[in-house]
Simulated scan of single mutants.
Amino acid sequence: MSNDQYSNQPPVDPNYQTNQPPSNQPQLYQPYSQPLQPQDQGQFVVPSGDQLVRGFKGLSLGRRLAIGGGLVAWLGYFLPWYSFSSAILGFRESSSVGLSYFWPWLGFLALTTVLVNLIAPLFGKHVYPLIQRTINLPLGKAVFYATAAALGLGLIGGLISKPSDMGFAEIDISFGFGFYLSILALGAATAGGWLMQQSGE
């Protein structure tokens, strides 16, 4: 058989390799593979626990700190912010009023928005490009501003919302565990936002 029939075939480079993985190989979970354009929001996926942990570990230090501190602070809003006690009357009660007043509630909403934007990409969904069209801020700077605002609103709102003893000297009102936990965790989340901003995220 003559080789003339192959003369019209294009030459094949022996060093050429395709970047496409074999069809029988599973795709790797990459929540932050490439920067997205504003019109590309991604498709929602439900990763396994192992994929979620590996995706979290693959994030920057600032982003991990913002997520971790934000989640702890978010839970702290549902814990008792104040405690009431009286040695004379013999009672001790706690009150979860972190979300009962306007300023702490506003900080809670800001924190929730931050967490949604930071956690959604771990599930393949990018939400921030929609918000960025309006506020025109990089994600790191937006996270820093929002967590700092939540910290200020939680601290000031907690002081303003502290119940009064109604003039009864025998009743002692103090801040509870939830208030301190929320403020400390919000401080950590704000530090994470600052690191994100410094790294240009």
Score class of each variant (00 low, 15 high):
93 E>W: 13
55 G>C: 07
71 L>Y: 03
65 L>Q: 07
99 L>Q: 01
92 R>P: 02
85 S>H: 12
51 Q>S: 10
81 W>Q: 08
78 F>E: 02
77 Y>M: 02
82 Y>Q: 07
90 G>W: 04
91 F>E: 10
63 R>K: 15
56 F>P: 07
58 G>I: 04
58 G>E: 03
92 R>D: 07
55 G>Q: 06
74 W>Q: 08
91 F>P: 03
78 F>S: 09
97 V>L: 05
70 G>R: 06
88 I>P: 09
91 F>I: 12
99 L>Y: 00
61 L>V: 14
85 S>V: 05
93 E>M: 13
88 I>V: 15
59 L>R: 13
83 S>I: 10
53 V>W: 13
90 G>A: 12
91 F>H: 10
94 S>V: 06
69 G>C: 05
75 L>R: 07
55 G>P: 05
67 I>N: 04
51 Q>W: 14
55 G>F: 06
58 G>Y: 05
85 S>T: 13
54 R>G: 01
66 A>K: 07
61 L>D: 11
76 G>K: 05
51 Q>N: 12
90 G>V: 12
97 V>P: 00
60 S>G: 15
82 Y>C: 01
74 W>A: 04
64 R>I: 09
83 S>E: 12
51 Q>E: 15
77 Y>F: 13
68 G>C: 06
78 F>Q: 03
98 G>F: 00
52 L>A: 14
84 F>K: 09
81 W>A: 09
94 S>A: 09
87 A>P: 11
52 L>F: 11
81 W>I: 06
67 I>M: 03
92 R>C: 00
59 L>Y: 05
99 L>D: 01
90 G>C: 12
83 S>K: 15
76 G>S: 11
51 Q>K: 14
52 L>E: 05
51 Q>Y: 09
54 R>A: 11
62 G>L: 09
89 L>I: 08
85 S>W: 00
70 G>T: 04
55 G>I: 10
53 V>A: 14
68 G>T: 14
88 I>N: 15
64 R>S: 02
90 G>L: 14
75 L>C: 14
96 S>G: 05
86 S>N: 12
85 S>L: 02
69 G>E: 03
74 W>V: 00
68 G>R: 03
97 V>D: 11
86 S>A: 06
95 S>R: 11
90 G>I: 15
80 P>W: 01
78 F>R: 08
79 L>H: 01
53 V>N: 11
90 G>F: 11
74 W>R: 01
54 R>P: 00
98 G>H: 01
69 G>A: 06
94 S>N: 10
83 S>M: 08
85 S>N: 11
61 L>C: 04
72 V>K: 08
90 G>Y: 12
96 S>N: 03
65 L>F: 08
65 L>I: 11
65 L>N: 10
70 G>I: 06
70 G>F: 04
71 L>N: 09
63 R>Y: 01
89 L>N: 15
82 Y>A: 01
84 F>I: 06
61 L>P: 04
76 G>C: 05
84 F>R: 12
68 G>Q: 02
